[in-house]
Amino acid sequence: MISRRFFIAAGAATLTGARSALAQSTYPDHTMRILVGYPAGGGVDLVARLVADPMREVLGQPVIVENRAGAAAMIAAQAVAKAGNDGHTLLMAASGEIAVNKHLYKEKMTYQPETELAPIALVGIVPCVVVVADASPVRTPADLIAFAKANKGKLSYSSSGVGNPQHLAGELMNKMAGTDVQHVPYRGSAPAVTDVAVGAVTMSFSSLAAALPLIQAGKIRAVAVTSRERMPQLPDVAPLSDAPGLAGYELLNWFAMFAPASSSPPILARLAEVMPQIMQRADIKEKLAIQGIVSRSMTDAELRAFVRSESDKFAGIIQEANITLGN
């Protein structure tokens, strides 16, 4: 005989399923916002605006991009982390505010990325490009390491600031290869690569978007990339991991979309279904490539594991190199 308890349990399951289906079918029901922790015109901002129209087409509601720059992008990240559970406020983020800053700012951070932000979709990876002056004898990753070892303590590399992926890429090279190239932080990527061209610093770990104009002008040369694979935009430039002592080397910036972790499972599932489909569009991939972003597909579960792994990697580099915000 089927018990009364069975009917109660079955009814509850049916009701829960109906509520989940209803939440997903009515989501979104008003304007959505994508918060960006950087000024308009930067890489993260451009990516957010790139996906806003396709999201509107698929989800049927307006999607606006809102810049809340400041505090190393943590103002925007905190706002989304505390935004509630309706899934209408999302975050387009780089690796810094998700996986780096907590190891630099520590108790000063007012949100917990791993518990308050749910990974939705990876937009793409942003390898650093290692550039030298055109007059430099360095042309390959092996040349770079040999030159650094022959001139230990005499060389320098620039980046766009302290504690960012470009800075950490150089520190990881020093750690793995036993080199001693000194970091020189700049306020932004443009002056960091410009000073390579004029010889003020030996090399730079830069985004492709910042370095490409000077590469095309013949003033600097790309000699390595920090991804394990060659970048489609620079097919003749080998990975830094090809150099002796750097097997397995990889250091990336990356862009991804996040939602408040408190959002209901059906809403998170809907976003995790829609966003990867948008990122696979040929026109989106082409526009990402122009910005030096390499498309890479991941499920939301894979992205969660990737973010955790990247955070652990960044933590190790920061600790090993004794990087603080005063350095």
Rank of each mutant, 00 (worst) to 15 (best):
Phe7Trp: 14
Ser158Leu: 05
Ile98Asn: 00
Ala305His: 08
Met298Gly: 00
Thr299Ile: 05
Pro113Leu: 12
Pro113Ala: 07
Ala83Thr: 05
Asn174Pro: 00
Arg281Asp: 03
Ala261Trp: 06
Val132Met: 09
Ser136Leu: 06
Ala177Ile: 09
Met109Phe: 09
Leu240Glu: 08
Asn101Gly: 08
Leu155Gln: 05
Gln277Ser: 13
Glu273Ile: 00
Gly84Val: 11
Thr26Tyr: 04
Ile125Gly: 06
Ser309Met: 15
Ser156Pro: 00
Ser241Tyr: 01
Tyr27Gly: 03
Arg270Asp: 00
Ile120Lys: 01
Pro244Phe: 07
Arg49Gln: 15
Gln24Val: 12
Asn85Pro: 01
Gln319His: 14
Met257Val: 13
Cys128Leu: 15
Ser262His: 08
Leu15Glu: 05
Ala261Glu: 10
Thr31Val: 14
Lys313Trp: 10
Leu22Val: 12
Val36Arg: 01
Lys152Gly: 06
Glu229Val: 15
Gly87Pro: 03
His183Phe: 07
Pro62Asp: 13
Ala190Leu: 11
His103Tyr: 12
Pro28Gln: 08
Arg228Val: 11
Asn174Asp: 10
Glu302Asn: 03
Val138Leu: 03
Val58Gly: 04
Leu251Ala: 12
Val132Ser: 06
Asp180Trp: 04
Ala18His: 02
Val44Ala: 08
Lys149Ala: 09
Asp300His: 00
Glu320Asn: 12
Ala238Pro: 00
Ile267Asn: 01
Gly188Ser: 08
Ala197Leu: 02
Ala301His: 02
Met74Ala: 14
Arg221Thr: 06
Ala177Gly: 07
Ala210Asp: 02
Arg49Thr: 09
Glu250Arg: 11
Gly87Leu: 10
Leu104Gly: 02
Pro119Ile: 05
Ser206Lys: 06
His88Asp: 11
Ile317Trp: 05
Thr89Gln: 13
Gly170Glu: 06
Ser204Pro: 00
Ala217Cys: 04
Ala259Lys: 07
Ala282Pro: 03
Ala79Gln: 12
Ala272Trp: 00
